[in-house]
Design a protein around this nucleic acid. Structure first.
Lengths: 215, 215
DNA sequence: ACAAAAGTGTTGCATATACACCCATGG
DNA sequence: CCATGGGTGTATATGCAACACTTTTGT
Protein backbone atom coordinates (compact mmCIF):
# COMPACT_ATOMS: atom_id res chain seq x y z
CA UNK A 1 0.00 0.00 0.00
CA UNK A 2 1.65 3.16 -1.24
CA UNK A 3 -0.15 6.19 0.07
CA UNK A 4 1.32 8.36 -2.68
CA UNK A 5 -0.23 6.25 -5.45
CA UNK A 6 -2.23 8.69 -7.62
CA UNK A 7 -4.94 6.09 -7.95
CA UNK A 8 -5.98 6.65 -4.38
CA UNK A 9 -4.13 9.60 -2.90
CA UNK A 10 -5.81 12.71 -1.58
CA UNK A 11 -8.97 10.96 -0.55
CA UNK A 12 -11.18 12.47 2.10
CA UNK A 13 -13.70 11.14 4.54
CA UNK A 14 -16.62 13.37 5.40
CA UNK A 15 -19.54 12.98 7.73
CA UNK A 16 -22.98 14.47 7.10
CA UNK A 17 -25.96 14.74 9.40
CA UNK A 18 -29.63 15.16 8.55
CA UNK A 19 -30.96 16.57 11.80
CA UNK A 20 -34.74 16.68 12.06
CA UNK A 21 -37.32 18.15 14.36
CA UNK A 22 -41.07 18.62 14.49
CA UNK A 23 -42.32 22.06 15.54
CA UNK A 24 -46.00 23.00 15.63
CA UNK A 25 -46.84 20.03 13.49
CA UNK A 26 -44.20 20.89 10.90
CA UNK A 27 -41.50 18.40 10.01
CA UNK A 28 -38.20 20.28 9.63
CA UNK A 29 -34.52 19.72 8.94
CA UNK A 30 -31.55 21.75 10.10
CA UNK A 31 -29.46 23.42 7.39
CA UNK A 32 -26.38 25.63 7.44
CA UNK A 33 -25.34 28.19 4.87
CA UNK A 34 -21.80 28.02 3.58
CA UNK A 35 -19.54 31.04 3.90
CA UNK A 36 -16.85 29.94 1.44
CA UNK A 37 -16.30 28.18 -1.85
CA UNK A 38 -17.19 25.65 -2.98
CA UNK A 39 -20.95 26.12 -2.80
CA UNK A 40 -20.52 29.56 -1.21
CA UNK A 41 -23.93 30.85 -0.01
CA UNK A 42 -25.55 27.49 -0.60
CA UNK A 43 -27.46 25.70 2.15
CA UNK A 44 -26.25 22.24 3.08
CA UNK A 45 -26.66 19.60 5.75
CA UNK A 46 -24.40 19.71 8.81
CA UNK A 47 -21.08 18.05 8.07
CA UNK A 48 -17.35 18.19 7.63
CA UNK A 49 -14.11 16.26 7.52
CA UNK A 50 -13.28 13.24 9.63
CA UNK A 51 -9.88 13.78 11.24
CA UNK A 52 -7.19 11.14 11.37
CA UNK A 53 -7.49 10.62 15.10
CA UNK A 54 -11.25 10.04 15.15
CA UNK A 55 -13.66 7.37 14.09
CA UNK A 56 -16.59 8.62 12.05
CA UNK A 57 -19.01 8.78 14.99
CA UNK A 58 -16.65 11.03 16.91
CA UNK A 59 -16.10 13.16 13.84
CA UNK A 60 -19.84 13.65 13.46
CA UNK A 61 -20.12 14.70 17.08
CA UNK A 62 -17.29 17.22 16.74
CA UNK A 63 -18.56 18.62 13.46
CA UNK A 64 -22.01 19.07 14.93
CA UNK A 65 -20.53 21.09 17.77
CA UNK A 66 -18.26 23.16 15.51
CA UNK A 67 -20.84 23.95 12.86
CA UNK A 68 -23.89 24.44 15.10
CA UNK A 69 -22.85 24.58 18.74
CA UNK A 70 -25.09 21.62 19.55
CA UNK A 71 -24.04 18.67 21.64
CA UNK A 72 -25.40 15.55 23.32
CA UNK A 73 -27.38 14.68 20.22
CA UNK A 74 -27.97 11.07 19.25
CA UNK A 75 -27.66 10.03 15.64
CA UNK A 76 -27.21 6.89 13.59
CA UNK A 77 -25.43 6.08 10.35
CA UNK A 78 -27.69 5.13 7.47
CA UNK A 79 -25.72 5.25 4.22
CA UNK A 80 -22.50 6.08 2.37
CA UNK A 81 -22.16 8.41 -0.62
CA UNK A 82 -19.15 7.93 -2.86
CA UNK A 83 -19.64 9.17 -6.40
CA UNK A 84 -16.14 10.24 -7.52
CA UNK A 85 -17.23 13.78 -8.45
CA UNK A 86 -19.52 14.52 -5.54
CA UNK A 87 -17.13 17.14 -4.20
CA UNK A 88 -15.29 19.61 -6.46
CA UNK A 89 -12.41 19.89 -3.96
CA UNK A 90 -11.09 16.38 -3.88
CA UNK A 91 -12.22 12.80 -3.89
CA UNK A 92 -14.47 12.65 -0.87
CA UNK A 93 -16.84 10.11 0.48
CA UNK A 94 -19.57 10.96 2.94
CA UNK A 95 -20.79 8.82 5.80
CA UNK A 96 -24.37 9.93 6.33
CA UNK A 97 -26.17 10.17 9.67
CA UNK A 98 -29.66 10.87 10.88
CA UNK A 99 -30.88 12.43 14.13
CA UNK A 100 -34.08 13.84 15.61
CA UNK A 101 -34.26 16.44 18.37
CA UNK A 102 -36.59 18.94 20.00
CA UNK A 103 -35.66 22.25 18.39
CA UNK A 104 -36.93 24.18 21.42
CA UNK A 105 -34.49 22.53 23.80
CA UNK A 106 -31.39 23.30 21.83
CA UNK A 107 -29.48 26.46 21.04
CA UNK A 108 -27.57 26.86 17.82
CA UNK A 109 -25.08 29.31 16.36
CA UNK A 110 -26.21 31.48 13.51
CA UNK A 111 -22.63 31.92 12.38
CA UNK A 112 -19.34 30.08 12.74
CA UNK A 113 -15.99 30.28 10.94
CA UNK A 114 -17.44 28.29 8.07
CA UNK A 115 -21.11 29.14 8.14
CA UNK A 116 -22.90 32.43 7.68
CA UNK A 117 -26.36 31.28 8.70
CA UNK A 118 -28.22 28.30 10.10
CA UNK A 119 -31.87 27.44 10.50
CA UNK A 120 -34.66 24.90 10.56
CA UNK A 121 -36.36 24.41 7.21
CA UNK A 122 -39.70 22.81 6.57
CA UNK A 123 -39.29 19.66 4.53
CA UNK A 124 -41.80 20.98 2.02
CA UNK A 125 -39.74 24.16 1.51
CA UNK A 126 -36.15 23.10 1.10
CA UNK A 127 -33.90 25.29 -1.06
CA UNK A 128 -31.53 23.80 -3.58
CA UNK A 129 -28.70 22.26 -1.54
CA UNK A 130 -24.95 22.14 -2.19
CA UNK A 131 -23.04 18.94 -2.98
CA UNK A 132 -25.34 15.90 -3.25
CA UNK A 133 -27.18 16.85 -0.10
CA UNK A 134 -30.59 16.95 -1.73
CA UNK A 135 -30.19 13.24 -2.46
CA UNK A 136 -28.85 12.52 1.03
CA UNK A 137 -31.75 14.39 2.62
CA UNK A 138 -34.28 12.45 0.55
CA UNK A 139 -32.73 9.13 1.52
CA UNK A 140 -32.61 10.11 5.18
CA UNK A 141 -36.33 10.92 5.24
CA UNK A 142 -37.12 7.60 3.64
CA UNK A 143 -34.93 5.83 6.20
CA UNK A 144 -36.56 7.67 9.11
CA UNK A 145 -40.04 6.74 7.94
CA UNK A 146 -39.05 3.11 7.65
CA UNK A 147 -37.55 2.94 11.15
CA UNK A 148 -39.96 5.12 13.03
CA UNK A 149 -41.97 2.28 14.57
CA UNK A 150 -38.96 0.03 15.17
CA UNK A 151 -37.21 1.96 17.91
CA UNK A 152 -37.36 5.03 20.10
CA UNK A 153 -35.77 7.04 17.31
CA UNK A 154 -37.80 10.11 18.33
CA UNK A 155 -36.59 9.93 21.90
CA UNK A 156 -34.82 13.31 21.80
CA UNK A 157 -37.78 15.01 20.21
CA UNK A 158 -39.62 15.13 23.54
CA UNK A 159 -38.91 16.03 27.14
CA UNK A 160 -38.71 13.22 29.67
CA UNK A 161 -42.49 13.03 29.93
CA UNK A 162 -44.89 13.73 27.10
CA UNK A 163 -48.50 13.15 26.19
CA UNK A 164 -49.89 10.77 23.67
CA UNK A 165 -51.38 13.53 21.51
CA UNK A 166 -47.93 15.14 21.32
CA UNK A 167 -46.15 12.09 20.03
CA UNK A 168 -49.09 11.16 17.86
CA UNK A 169 -48.89 14.51 16.11
CA UNK A 170 -45.15 14.10 15.59
CA UNK A 171 -45.63 10.74 13.92
CA UNK A 172 -48.35 12.13 11.70
CA UNK A 173 -46.18 15.06 10.67
CA UNK A 174 -43.20 12.91 9.81
CA UNK A 175 -45.14 10.20 8.01
CA UNK A 176 -47.38 12.84 6.47
CA UNK A 177 -50.56 10.85 7.04
CA UNK A 178 -53.28 10.22 9.60
CA UNK A 179 -52.83 7.42 12.12
CA UNK A 180 -55.63 6.00 14.25
CA UNK A 181 -55.13 7.14 17.86
CA UNK A 182 -56.14 3.87 19.50
CA UNK A 183 -54.02 1.67 17.29
CA UNK A 184 -51.11 4.07 17.58
CA UNK A 185 -51.16 3.87 21.36
CA UNK A 186 -51.39 0.09 21.42
CA UNK A 187 -48.57 -0.27 18.93
CA UNK A 188 -46.08 1.88 20.85
CA UNK A 189 -47.04 0.32 24.17
CA UNK A 190 -46.89 -3.27 22.92
CA UNK A 191 -43.54 -2.75 21.24
CA UNK A 192 -42.33 -1.35 24.51
CA UNK A 193 -41.23 1.93 22.98
CA UNK A 194 -43.21 4.09 25.41
CA UNK A 195 -44.67 3.44 28.86
CA UNK A 196 -47.39 5.01 30.97
CA UNK A 197 -46.00 6.96 33.94
CA UNK A 198 -49.27 7.18 35.90
CA UNK A 199 -48.96 10.97 35.94
CA UNK A 200 -51.16 13.40 34.08
CA UNK A 201 -50.37 16.68 32.44
CA UNK A 202 -50.79 19.72 34.70
CA UNK A 203 -53.67 20.97 32.56
CA UNK A 204 -54.02 22.36 29.08
CA UNK A 205 -57.51 23.69 28.73
CA UNK A 206 -59.38 20.47 28.08
CA UNK A 207 -59.35 17.00 29.55
CA UNK A 208 -55.96 16.34 31.17
CA UNK A 209 -53.69 14.08 29.13
CA UNK A 210 -51.72 11.22 30.64
CA UNK A 211 -47.96 11.40 30.63
CA UNK A 212 -45.82 8.78 28.94
CA UNK A 213 -42.08 8.21 28.77
CA UNK A 214 -39.74 6.33 26.47
CA UNK A 215 -38.43 3.06 27.90
CA UNK B 1 -10.80 22.56 2.57
CA UNK B 2 -7.06 22.14 2.41
CA UNK B 3 -6.16 18.63 1.33
CA UNK B 4 -2.67 19.02 2.83
CA UNK B 5 -4.00 19.64 6.31
CA UNK B 6 -2.33 17.05 8.56
CA UNK B 7 -5.59 16.61 10.43
CA UNK B 8 -7.05 14.79 7.49
CA UNK B 9 -4.41 14.11 4.86
CA UNK B 10 -3.40 10.65 3.70
CA UNK B 11 -6.77 9.11 4.34
CA UNK B 12 -7.77 5.98 2.52
CA UNK B 13 -11.02 4.35 1.56
CA UNK B 14 -11.13 0.58 1.48
CA UNK B 15 -13.82 -1.88 0.57
CA UNK B 16 -14.18 -5.30 2.18
CA UNK B 17 -16.39 -8.22 1.21
CA UNK B 18 -17.59 -11.13 3.31
CA UNK B 19 -18.46 -13.64 0.61
CA UNK B 20 -20.40 -16.67 1.83
CA UNK B 21 -21.48 -20.00 0.49
CA UNK B 22 -23.06 -23.20 1.72
CA UNK B 23 -21.47 -26.46 0.58
CA UNK B 24 -22.65 -29.87 1.75
CA UNK B 25 -24.52 -28.29 4.59
CA UNK B 26 -21.49 -26.28 5.73
CA UNK B 27 -21.70 -22.51 5.98
CA UNK B 28 -18.43 -21.05 4.66
CA UNK B 29 -16.73 -17.74 3.96
CA UNK B 30 -14.10 -16.92 1.35
CA UNK B 31 -10.71 -15.79 2.67
CA UNK B 32 -7.47 -14.79 0.99
CA UNK B 33 -3.97 -15.05 2.39
CA UNK B 34 -1.79 -11.96 2.21
CA UNK B 35 1.55 -12.14 0.46
CA UNK B 36 3.04 -8.90 1.85
CA UNK B 37 3.25 -6.78 4.95
CA UNK B 38 1.28 -5.69 6.82
CA UNK B 39 -0.33 -8.88 8.02
CA UNK B 40 1.89 -10.98 5.76
CA UNK B 41 0.70 -14.61 5.71
CA UNK B 42 -2.50 -13.69 7.53
CA UNK B 43 -5.89 -14.62 6.16
CA UNK B 44 -8.31 -11.75 5.53
CA UNK B 45 -11.59 -11.00 3.80
CA UNK B 46 -11.55 -9.92 0.16
CA UNK B 47 -10.84 -6.21 -0.13
CA UNK B 48 -8.66 -3.35 -1.20
CA UNK B 49 -8.46 0.34 -1.98
CA UNK B 50 -11.17 2.39 -3.61
CA UNK B 51 -9.65 4.37 -6.47
CA UNK B 52 -10.36 8.02 -7.12
CA UNK B 53 -12.36 7.39 -10.25
CA UNK B 54 -14.73 4.84 -8.71
CA UNK B 55 -17.61 4.82 -6.32
CA UNK B 56 -17.35 2.21 -3.60
CA UNK B 57 -19.61 -0.33 -5.32
CA UNK B 58 -17.41 -0.27 -8.42
CA UNK B 59 -14.29 -0.56 -6.30
CA UNK B 60 -15.69 -3.63 -4.59
CA UNK B 61 -16.42 -5.21 -7.96
CA UNK B 62 -12.93 -4.51 -9.25
CA UNK B 63 -11.20 -5.69 -6.08
CA UNK B 64 -13.19 -8.89 -6.15
CA UNK B 65 -11.99 -9.55 -9.68
CA UNK B 66 -8.37 -8.63 -8.93
CA UNK B 67 -8.04 -10.57 -5.71
CA UNK B 68 -10.08 -13.64 -6.63
CA UNK B 69 -10.86 -13.64 -10.35
CA UNK B 70 -14.60 -13.73 -9.62
CA UNK B 71 -17.15 -11.52 -11.32
CA UNK B 72 -20.88 -11.01 -11.69
CA UNK B 73 -21.37 -11.39 -7.96
CA UNK B 74 -24.05 -9.46 -6.14
CA UNK B 75 -23.30 -7.88 -2.80
CA UNK B 76 -24.68 -5.22 -0.50
CA UNK B 77 -23.13 -2.73 1.87
CA UNK B 78 -23.87 -3.32 5.54
CA UNK B 79 -21.53 -1.24 7.68
CA UNK B 80 -18.54 1.11 7.93
CA UNK B 81 -15.42 0.54 10.02
CA UNK B 82 -13.41 3.58 10.96
CA UNK B 83 -11.32 3.16 14.09
CA UNK B 84 -8.27 5.41 13.53
CA UNK B 85 -5.76 2.61 14.09
CA UNK B 86 -7.49 -0.18 12.23
CA UNK B 87 -4.76 -0.21 9.59
CA UNK B 88 -1.04 0.15 10.41
CA UNK B 89 -0.34 1.70 6.98
CA UNK B 90 -2.40 4.84 7.09
CA UNK B 91 -5.72 6.13 8.23
CA UNK B 92 -8.14 3.92 6.41
CA UNK B 93 -11.83 3.37 6.63
CA UNK B 94 -13.52 0.27 5.31
CA UNK B 95 -16.90 0.08 3.64
CA UNK B 96 -18.07 -3.47 4.31
CA UNK B 97 -20.11 -5.64 1.95
CA UNK B 98 -21.82 -8.99 2.09
CA UNK B 99 -22.50 -11.52 -0.67
CA UNK B 100 -23.63 -15.13 -1.03
CA UNK B 101 -22.80 -17.41 -3.97
CA UNK B 102 -22.71 -21.03 -5.04
CA UNK B 103 -19.07 -22.02 -4.61
CA UNK B 104 -19.40 -24.76 -7.22
CA UNK B 105 -20.36 -22.34 -9.97
CA UNK B 106 -17.41 -20.03 -9.57
CA UNK B 107 -13.68 -20.36 -10.21
CA UNK B 108 -11.17 -18.48 -8.13
CA UNK B 109 -7.45 -17.77 -8.27
CA UNK B 110 -5.23 -19.42 -5.70
CA UNK B 111 -2.63 -16.73 -6.14
CA UNK B 112 -2.51 -13.13 -7.38
CA UNK B 113 0.03 -10.32 -7.12
CA UNK B 114 -1.10 -9.66 -3.57
CA UNK B 115 -2.37 -13.01 -2.38
CA UNK B 116 -0.55 -16.29 -1.91
CA UNK B 117 -3.60 -18.46 -1.27
CA UNK B 118 -7.39 -18.35 -1.23
CA UNK B 119 -10.05 -20.71 -0.01
CA UNK B 120 -13.45 -21.32 1.52
CA UNK B 121 -13.38 -21.68 5.30
CA UNK B 122 -16.07 -23.15 7.49
CA UNK B 123 -17.49 -20.51 9.79
CA UNK B 124 -16.78 -22.74 12.75
CA UNK B 125 -13.08 -23.00 11.79
CA UNK B 126 -11.92 -19.50 10.98
CA UNK B 127 -8.25 -18.69 11.61
CA UNK B 128 -7.21 -15.45 13.26
CA UNK B 129 -7.74 -12.75 10.63
CA UNK B 130 -5.69 -9.66 9.79
CA UNK B 131 -6.85 -6.10 10.38
CA UNK B 132 -10.25 -5.95 12.12
CA UNK B 133 -11.68 -8.57 9.81
CA UNK B 134 -12.72 -10.92 12.58
CA UNK B 135 -15.05 -8.23 13.82
CA UNK B 136 -16.29 -7.45 10.30
CA UNK B 137 -16.95 -11.12 9.63
CA UNK B 138 -18.91 -11.47 12.86
CA UNK B 139 -21.05 -8.45 12.04
CA UNK B 140 -21.68 -9.68 8.52
CA UNK B 141 -22.96 -13.05 9.74
CA UNK B 142 -25.28 -11.31 12.15
CA UNK B 143 -26.54 -9.06 9.36
CA UNK B 144 -27.09 -11.99 7.01
CA UNK B 145 -29.10 -13.88 9.61
CA UNK B 146 -31.27 -10.85 10.22
CA UNK B 147 -32.01 -10.27 6.53
CA UNK B 148 -32.30 -13.83 5.33
CA UNK B 149 -36.10 -13.94 5.32
CA UNK B 150 -36.54 -10.38 4.06
CA UNK B 151 -35.26 -10.75 0.52
CA UNK B 152 -33.84 -13.16 -2.02
CA UNK B 153 -30.38 -12.62 -0.53
CA UNK B 154 -29.46 -16.25 -1.28
CA UNK B 155 -30.38 -15.92 -4.94
CA UNK B 156 -26.86 -16.59 -6.21
CA UNK B 157 -26.42 -19.60 -3.98
CA UNK B 158 -28.60 -21.72 -6.29
CA UNK B 159 -28.98 -22.42 -9.97
CA UNK B 160 -32.04 -21.07 -11.73
CA UNK B 161 -34.22 -23.89 -10.44
CA UNK B 162 -33.77 -25.61 -7.13
CA UNK B 163 -35.68 -27.85 -4.77
CA UNK B 164 -37.21 -26.97 -1.48
CA UNK B 165 -34.98 -29.38 0.47
CA UNK B 166 -31.92 -27.68 -1.03
CA UNK B 167 -32.85 -24.19 0.05
CA UNK B 168 -34.20 -25.46 3.35
CA UNK B 169 -30.85 -27.01 4.15
CA UNK B 170 -29.06 -23.80 3.25
CA UNK B 171 -31.21 -21.78 5.62
CA UNK B 172 -30.66 -24.27 8.40
CA UNK B 173 -26.89 -24.20 7.87
CA UNK B 174 -26.70 -20.44 7.91
CA UNK B 175 -29.04 -19.93 10.83
CA UNK B 176 -27.55 -22.95 12.56
CA UNK B 177 -30.89 -24.28 13.70
CA UNK B 178 -33.78 -26.50 12.61
CA UNK B 179 -36.68 -24.92 10.74
CA UNK B 180 -40.04 -26.61 10.21
CA UNK B 181 -40.34 -27.62 6.53
CA UNK B 182 -44.00 -26.71 6.16
CA UNK B 183 -43.73 -23.31 7.76
CA UNK B 184 -40.54 -22.62 5.86
CA UNK B 185 -42.21 -23.27 2.52
CA UNK B 186 -45.25 -21.17 3.34
CA UNK B 187 -43.11 -18.30 4.54
CA UNK B 188 -40.97 -18.07 1.41
CA UNK B 189 -43.97 -18.49 -0.88
CA UNK B 190 -46.12 -15.94 0.93
CA UNK B 191 -43.36 -13.36 0.99
CA UNK B 192 -42.98 -13.93 -2.70
CA UNK B 193 -39.32 -14.80 -2.43
CA UNK B 194 -39.64 -18.11 -4.28
CA UNK B 195 -42.25 -19.52 -6.67
CA UNK B 196 -43.27 -23.00 -7.81
CA UNK B 197 -42.26 -23.71 -11.42
CA UNK B 198 -44.51 -26.73 -11.93
CA UNK B 199 -41.47 -28.81 -12.87
CA UNK B 200 -39.98 -31.63 -10.85
CA UNK B 201 -36.42 -32.69 -10.33
CA UNK B 202 -35.19 -35.32 -12.83
CA UNK B 203 -34.87 -37.88 -10.03
CA UNK B 204 -32.58 -38.35 -7.09
CA UNK B 205 -33.20 -41.78 -5.72
CA UNK B 206 -36.33 -41.11 -3.69
CA UNK B 207 -39.54 -39.22 -4.29
CA UNK B 208 -38.98 -36.52 -6.94
CA UNK B 209 -38.78 -32.99 -5.54
CA UNK B 210 -40.59 -30.04 -7.10
CA UNK B 211 -38.53 -27.25 -8.59
CA UNK B 212 -38.78 -23.67 -7.39
CA UNK B 213 -37.23 -20.42 -8.57
CA UNK B 214 -36.58 -17.01 -7.04
CA UNK B 215 -38.98 -14.32 -8.17
C1' DA C 1 -43.07 -54.62 2.06
C1' DC C 2 -40.24 -51.34 3.73
C1' DA C 3 -36.91 -47.64 4.10
C1' DA C 4 -35.90 -43.02 2.71
C1' DA C 5 -37.08 -38.59 1.50
C1' DA C 6 -40.71 -35.20 -0.14
C1' DG C 7 -45.19 -33.56 -0.07
C1' DT C 8 -48.94 -31.28 2.41
C1' DG C 9 -53.09 -28.84 6.03
C1' DT C 10 -55.14 -27.40 10.45
C1' DT C 11 -55.16 -25.06 14.71
C1' DG C 12 -53.87 -21.64 17.89
C1' DC C 13 -51.51 -17.40 19.02
C1' DA C 14 -49.86 -12.90 18.18
C1' DT C 15 -49.99 -8.79 15.77
C1' DA C 16 -52.24 -5.15 12.96
C1' DT C 17 -56.34 -2.82 11.36
C1' DA C 18 -60.92 -0.82 11.30
C1' DC C 19 -64.07 1.44 13.76
C1' DA C 20 -67.37 4.80 17.68
C1' DC C 21 -68.57 6.20 21.99
C1' DC C 22 -67.68 8.17 26.66
C1' DC C 23 -65.35 11.50 29.82
C1' DA C 24 -63.14 15.62 31.81
C1' DT C 25 -62.44 20.33 31.51
C1' DG C 26 -63.13 25.40 30.54
C1' DG C 27 -66.04 28.73 29.14
C1' DC D 1 -74.79 22.82 28.85
C1' DC D 2 -71.86 22.51 25.24
C1' DA D 3 -67.66 22.51 22.67
C1' DT D 4 -63.13 20.73 22.66
C1' DG D 5 -60.02 17.31 22.94
C1' DG D 6 -58.49 12.93 25.36
C1' DG D 7 -59.50 8.48 26.84
C1' DT D 8 -60.62 3.64 25.82
C1' DG D 9 -62.37 -1.65 23.72
C1' DT D 10 -64.05 -4.97 20.37
C1' DA D 11 -64.20 -7.48 16.21
C1' DT D 12 -61.79 -8.89 12.09
C1' DA D 13 -57.86 -10.11 9.25
C1' DT D 14 -53.33 -11.40 8.59
C1' DG D 15 -48.79 -13.45 9.71
C1' DC D 16 -46.13 -16.92 12.27
C1' DA D 17 -45.49 -21.28 15.01
C1' DA D 18 -46.59 -25.89 16.38
C1' DC D 19 -47.58 -30.19 14.94
C1' DA D 20 -48.06 -35.77 11.97
C1' DC D 21 -49.43 -38.32 8.38
C1' DT D 22 -49.37 -39.56 3.41
C1' DT D 23 -46.98 -40.23 -1.13
C1' DT D 24 -43.41 -41.65 -4.21
C1' DT D 25 -39.58 -44.18 -5.39
C1' DG D 26 -35.81 -47.75 -5.15
C1' DT D 27 -34.43 -51.96 -3.27
Amino acid sequence: MDIKNPLYKNQGIHVVLALFTVENGKFKVFLIQRKNEPFKDKWILIGGACYNNEDVDSAMKRELLEKTGMKDIHFQMFNVYSKPDRSPVCRMIAIAYLGVIDCNRVKYLKETTKTQDADWFEISHIPELGYDHTEILGDSIEFLKKKIFDSAILKDLFPKYFTLPDIHNAYESILNKKIDRRNFRKRLLQKNIIADTGMVQEVAGKKPAKLYKFV
